[in-house]
């Protein structure tokens, strides 16, 4: 067991972890419920979080590597989550909701990197976020809706 200190959703935290634990395991042990595990092979995107502002798969980040870094999960972005969540809900796109937090973390990263993304760019950026309920079309409509909302706010 080792002690790892990092910043989680704006607060300094200390976690105990084995050397081969992943950031995902550490986050769950700290009571972060939004991160989910849908595979063991880095395919599904359910565990996406932001590390120093960039979207990463928390299952693929060795726990010790997050020492001293800044980790943000959906719990730390509740205002954005509500607005983006409303866009998803208005399309019925969240369905079972299990993939939603990971998807949303990636959308929020996309919104920063490429707020004017086209449909193709949205699909390509989000390709690593699997969803078995929605068939993706409603999610694309929701992301479009969200990006338009953001754009309007910027121009206003």
């Amino acid at each position: 067991m080792m002690e790892i200190r990092f910043k989680l959703n704006g607060r300094d935290v200390t976690a105990m972890a084995e050397a081969d634990d992943s950031l995902y395991q550490v986050l769950r042990s700290l009571g972060i419920s939004s991160v989910k595990c849908g595979c063991e092979t880095t395919n599904c995107g359910l565990c996406t979080v932001h590390m120093d502002g960039k979207a990463v798969l928390s299952c693929s980040v060795p726990a010790p590597r997050c020492a001293g870094h800044e980790i943000v999960t959906l719990e730390g972005l509740q205002d954005e989550a509500k607005r983006l969540g409303a866009c998803l809900a208005d399309e019925g796109a969240e369905q079972c909701g299990f993939c939603a937090p990971g998807l949303m973390m990636n959308v929020l990263a996309l919104a920063k990197e490429n707020p004017g993304a086209s449909d193709e760019e949205i699909d390509a950026y989000m390709a690593g976020n699997l969803c078995r309920c929605s068939g993706y079309m409603s999610q694309r409509r929701a992301v479009r809706r969200y990006l338009a909302m953001i754009a309007q706010e910027v121009s206003a």
């Binding site: 509500k82 983006l84 409303a86 998803l88 809900a89 969240e94 909701g97």
Partner: peptide
Amino acid sequence: RKKDAEALTTGK
């Protein structure tokens, strides 16, 4: 909207 939408999309 689904009744559970907000809980699901805020990671509860």
